[in-house]
Design a protein around this nucleic acid. Structure first.
Length: 506
RNA sequence: GUCUUGUUAGCUCAGCUGGUAGAGCACGUCACUUUUAAUGAUGUGGCCGAUGGUUCGAAUCCAUCACAGGACACCA
C-alpha cells in the first residue's frame, strides 16, 4: 500500500503523537509576515551592528526544513521558501518551557513545513540568520525527502514527481519562472502591438491547420467524435475573414505522434495573424519580438546553447535556394535540376524516395546540408511551393512562396507566411490532399469545406506565423529536452505489476 | 519503430569471470549551546524492475516483458 514504507509509518506515528500533545500537525493559522528573501535584504545591515544582532526587530517566516543540525541544547536548521533559504538558530533556553526537548527534538525533522519568529543576528561564521523565540509546526511531511547532498537526480523520478524535483532542485524553479515570463512577455508584446488575444476551440470537428495525426474524443450528447486540435490556424483565419485585423492565440496543440527530446504530445505555441501585412512584415516583428524578450528577461544576446554559442544580435535572411550553396556547400549549378540533385544525394549515400518533385528534393538538400549549420538566428525565405501547401505564391516567381522559417541553433523555431486567401485555390489544394489521403498518406490535410466557405467571403491579404514556445524556452534556458521545460511532461503510466501478473495467470 | 545503456535500502551509488547483499545520506538510540553535506558512538533497514530458463547454486549468465535515459528514423 502507499504508506507501508517504514519511514513513512514512523512519521505518521510522530504526527499522531503530536496530536496527543495537543499540537495540530496540519495547522492552518500561519502568521508569516515576510518572505525569506525580504528578511535577508532588510536585515543585511545587522552585520555592522555592535553585537551582530538586533533584538528589537521581530519577524515571522515560514518554509520547509531542508537541513537540520541538532547539537544538544541548540540546533541550526536551513529553512527554504519560494524566495530563498535562511539559517535559523533554535536554542532550548529561548523557546517556551520544554518545547525544545519534548517537541522539537522528538517530532520535527527535515521536510516539515514550519513557522519561526525571532530576531536577526549574524553567526560566528558570518551568516545572517534568524534567532528563534517562537516555533510552530505548520505541516508534517510524512514522506522523507531524498538525500540532502545529491538530491534527486533520476530523470524518470524528476519528471513523474515534479513536485519532488522542485523541492530538491531550486534551479528547476528558475527554468519554469523563465518559461512563465516568456509567455507573459509574449502576450504583452502582441497586445502592445494592437493584437487581440482570442480563444478558439480545442475540440475540432475536423483536425486541420497542419499535417498530423489527431487525438480523438467523443461527445456523448451529440453522439459524435471530436478531435483535439493539431493547430488553431483555420479558426484564426476565420476571425480575419470576420474583420479582426490582428489576432493571436497562445495555447496547447495536441499531436498523436512520437515523443522525444523535442516532441511532447501536447505542446504550446503562439499563432498570430495580421491583416494587410506580408511575410516581410513578419520578419521585422519577429526581430522586434526577440529584442523585446531579451531586454525584459535581462539576458545577454550572446547565449550558450550546449556546445554552441548563439548571437541573438545577428539575425540574417537568405532565400532557401541560395542557402543550399552558400551555406550548405551544394554546387550551385545542380540546385535547380531534379536529376542532378538525385545524383548528388546518392553520391553522399543519401537515399531518395522515388517520385519526389524538385521542391521536395530542395527541401531534402536543405535538411541534409543547411539546417544544422544555422546557429545564429536565420530567416530562410522563399520556400518551394511544393512543400508549402498553405502559403501564398510569390507574385514574381510562381515556383516559390512568400514564406520563411526561422532557425536558431540548428532548430526550427518559427514558421510563417503570407496566407493563401484565394478560396478556389484553397479548395483545389484540399482536394489534392484528399487524393494523397486516398493513396495512403494518413497525415494529409482533411477537407474543410466550412473553412473554404469562410474564405469565399473574402479574407484580406494576411500574414500569419507560429512559434513553438517550448522550443523557444529550451533555447533561452539552455535545456536540451522538451521535458525539462514542461512541468508535467507526458509519461507512460507505470504498470501495476502485481495486478497484471495475477490477472494473466488466473 | 530501430539500436543502445540502465533499473540493487526512502535518496545517491558499489557489488569482478555465478557461492547466503555493501557504503554514504536519511531514520532509531546516546553525547554535544555557533553549526554549514555539523561531529562522535551505536543500531534498524532489501522479493537486487517482472516473468521464465541454464546451474547443485543467479543481483551476477541467457531469453522475453515493463519503464526510463541517449542516439537514429518518422513527424512540424
Amino acid at each position: 500500500m502507499i504508506f507501508d514504507n517504514k519511514f513513512i509509518q514512523q512519521r505518521i506515528e510522530k504526527a499522531k503523537l503530536l496530536k496527543a500533545e495537543g499540537i495540530n500537525p496540519y495547522a492552518n493559522d500561519s502568521k508569516r509576515n515576510t518572505t525569506i528573501e525580504k528578511y535577508l535584504n532588510v536585515n543585511s545591515d545587522v552585520v555592522n551592528k555592535e553585537n551582530k544582532r538586533d533584538e528589537h526587530r521581530h519577524y515571522t517566516i515560514s518554509g520547509r526544513i531542508k537541513l537540520l543540525r541538532i547539537m544538544g541544547k541548540a540546533s541550526f536548521l536551513q529553512l527554504e521558501d519560494e524566495s530563498g533559504t535562511v539559517q535559523v538558530y533554535v536554542a532550548r533556553d529561548h523557546l517556551p518551557e520544554d518545547f525544545y526537548n519534548n517537541i522539537f527534538k522528538k517530532y520535527i525533522e527535515v521536510g516539515d513545513i514550519i513557522e519561526v519568529s525571532g530576531y536577526p543576528f549574524v553567526t560566528g561564521q558570518g551568516e545572517l540568520s534568524l534567532h528563534a523565540s517562537e516555533f510552530k509546526l505548520l505541516t508534517k511531511a510524512i514522506a522523507p525527502l531524498p538525500e540532502k547532498f545529491h538530491g534527486i537526480t533520476d530523470k524518470e523520478t524528476r519528471y513523474r514527481k515534479r513536485y519532488l524535483d522542485l523541492i530538491m532542485n531550486a534551479e528547476v524553479r528558475k527554468t519554469f519562472k523563465i518559461r512563465s515570463k516568456v509567455i507573459s512577455l509574449t502576450r504583452r508584446f502582441f497586445e502592445d502591438k494592437g493584437f487581440l488575444e482570442v480563444e478558439t476551440p480545442m475540440m475540432h470537428p475536423i483536425a486541420g491547420g497542419a499535417n498530423a495525426k489527431p487525438f480523438v474524443t467523443h461527445h456523448n450528447a451529440l453522439g459524435i467524435d471530436r478531435f483535439l486540435r493539431i493547430a488553431p490556424e483555420l479558426y484564426l483565419k476565420r476571425l480575419i475573414v470576420g474583420g479582426f485585423e490582428a489576432v493571436f492565440e497562445i495555447n496547447r496543440n495536441f499531436r498523436n505522434e512520437g515523443m522525444d527530446a523535442t516532441h511532447n504530445p501536447e505542446f504550446t505555441s503562439i499563432e498570430f495573424y495580421w491583416a494587410y501585412k506580408t511575410y516581410k512584415d513578419l520578419i521585422k516583428i519577429t526581430k522586434e519580438y526577440f529584442e523585446y524578450l531579451f531586454e525584459h528577461l535581462n539576458l545577454p544576446t550572446l547565449l550558450p546553447y550546449g556546445e554552441l554559442e548563439v548571437n541573438f544580435d545577428n539575425f540574417t535572411e537568405i532565400p532557401l535556394i541560395e542557402s543550399l550553396s552558400s551555406i550548405g556547400g551544394v554546387p550551385s549549378e545542380i540546385v535547380n535540376d531534379k536529376d542532378k540533385i538525385i545524383a548528388f544525394l546518392n553520391s553522399k549515400n543519401i537515399t531518395v524516395k522515388p517520385g519526389m518533385n524538385l521542391g521536395q528534393l530542395q527541401g531534402e538538400l536543405f535538411d541534409e546540408f543547411v539546417e544544422e549549420k544555422l546557429i545564429d538566428p536565420t530567416f530562410i525565405t522563399e520556400y518551394p511551393v511544393e512543400i508549402s501547401p498553405l502559403a501564398r505564391r510569390s507574385d514574381v516567381n510562381p515556383d516559390i512562396t512568400e514564406r520563411f522559417e526561422l532557425f536558431i541553433a540548428g532548430r526550427e523555431i518559427a514558421n510563417a507566411f503570407s496566407e493563401l486567401n484565394d478560396p478556389v485555390d484553397q479548395l483545389g489544394r484540399f482536394e489534392g490532399q484528399m487524393s494523397a489521403k486516398d493513396s495512403g498518406d494518413d497525415e494529409a490535410h482533411e477537407m474543410d469545406e466550412d473553412f473554404v466557405e469562410a474564405l469565399s467571403y473574402g479574407m484580406a491579404p494576411t500574414a500569419g506565423q507560429g512559434i513553438g514556445i517550448d522550443r523557444l524556452v529550451m533555447l533561452l534556458t539552455n535545456e536540451h529536452s522538451i521535458r525539462d521545460v514542461l512541468l508535467f511532461p507526458a509519461m507512460r503510466p507505470l504498470s501495476n505489476d502485481e495486478n497484471n501478473a495475477q490477472g494473466e495467470e488466473a
